[in-house]
C-alpha cells in the first residue's frame, strides 16, 4: 500500500517538476481562458446586468475549451519518449500510474482554471458573494473533465494529429458537465442553492474516478502494441 502511494507521489512529482521547467505549456490554457472570457464584454456590451446573464455560459464554455486544449498533452509526451512503455513494464499497476498522471494533470490545468474563474467572473460583473460557489463548481467539473479526457487522450495516442479527433470524442460526453456546471454557476450568481447541480458534477467525477483510469490503461496498452 505504502509503495503504491510513494509510486503515485513520484509520478506526480515528476510531472509537476517538468511543468515548472516548461511553463509555457502550463500557461497556454489559462491564457486562452482569460482571453476568451475578456473578449465577450468587448463584443457584447459593457452593461453589467446583461454580462451577469451570460456569465455562466461564457465561463463554462471558456473553461471547457481551455481544458480540452490541455488534455491533448496529457499522455502525448510520455508516449513519444517511451515513458508510457516503461510504466506499462514497471511491474506496477498501469491503471494506478495513469490515475496519478491524471491527478497531476488536474493539479496543473483544472485547479488553476478553478482558481482563475473568480477573477474572470469578476470581469463579467458577478458579485463577490458568488465566487466560492463558482470556483467550487469549476473545480469539480474539471475533475470529471480531466478523467473523461484521460480516456480520449489514451484512445487517440496511436493517431498522428489526434487533436481534432480528441475534441470530437470528448465534447459530446462533456455536454452534461457543461449544462450542470453552467447551472451551478447561474445559481451561485442568483444566490440560490447549488446542491443539485453540484451533486450531479460530483457523481460524474466519482464515476470517472472509478472507471476512467481502467479504460485509459486498456487504451494505452493497445496503443503500445
Amino acid at each position: 500500500m505504502s509503495s503504491a502511494v510513494s509510486c503515485a507521489r513520484l509520478v506526480i512529482g515528476r510531472d509537476l517538476r517538468l511543468a515548472f521547467r516548461n511553463r509555457t505549456q502550463l500557461l497556454h490554457p489559462l491564457l486562452f481562458f482569460a482571453i476568451v472570457t475578456t473578449l465577450f464584454p468587448l463584443a457584447l456590451t459593457p452593461e453589467p446586468s446583461q454580462l451577469r446573464d451570460v456569465a455562466p455560459a461564457v465561463l463554462w464554455v471558456g473553461a471547457l475549451l481551455a481544458s480540452l486544449l490541455a488534455i491533448e498533452f496529457l499522455f502525448r509526451e510520455d508516449a513519444q519518449d517511451g515513458t508510457l512503455e516503461q510504466y506499462a513494464l514497471s511491474g506496477r499497476s498501469l491503471t494506478w500510474l495513469l490515475f496519478a498522471k491524471t491527478v497531476s494533470h488536474w493539479l496543473l490545468s483544472g485547479l488553476p482554471l478553478a482558481l482563475m474563474s473568480p477573477i474572470v467572473a469578476y470581469g463579467l460583473a458577478v458579485s463577490p458573494a458568488a465566487m466560492p460557489g463558482i470556483a467550487a463548481s469549476v473545480a469539480l467539473g474539471t475533475i470529471a473533465l480531466s478523467l473523461l479526457g484521460a480516456i480520449s487522450a489514451a484512445l487517440t495516442l496511436g493517431i498522428r494529429r489526434g487533436g481534432a479527433l480528441l475534441s470530437l470524442l470528448t465534447l459530446p460526453l462533456a455536454v452534461p458537465l457543461l449544462i450542470f456546471g453552467a447551472q451551478a454557476t447561474a445559481r451561485a450568481i442568483e444566490g440560490a442553492s447549488l446542491v443539485a447541480p453540484m451533486y450531479f458534477l460530483a457523481a460524474c467525477a466519482v464515476l470517472g474516478l472509478t472507471l476512467a483510469p481502467l479504460a485509459a490503461a486498456a487504451a494505452v496498452r493497445i496503443s503500445l502494441e
Binding site: 515528476r14 517538476r17 517538468l18 521547467r21 516548461n22 519518449d81 517511451g82 515513458t83 512503455e85 516503461q86 506499462a88 513494464l89 514497471s90 511491474g91
Partner: peptide, 18 residues
C-alpha cells in the same frame, strides 16, 4: 514478470527537461 524485467527500447526513455 515485469517486476523482474528491464526493457530498453531503441529510444532512450528520458525526459529532456530533467
Amino acid at each position: 514478470f515485469h517486476a523482474q524485467l528491464a526493457y530498453l527500447g531503441h529510444e532512450s526513455p528520458l525526459k529532456a527537461d530533467l
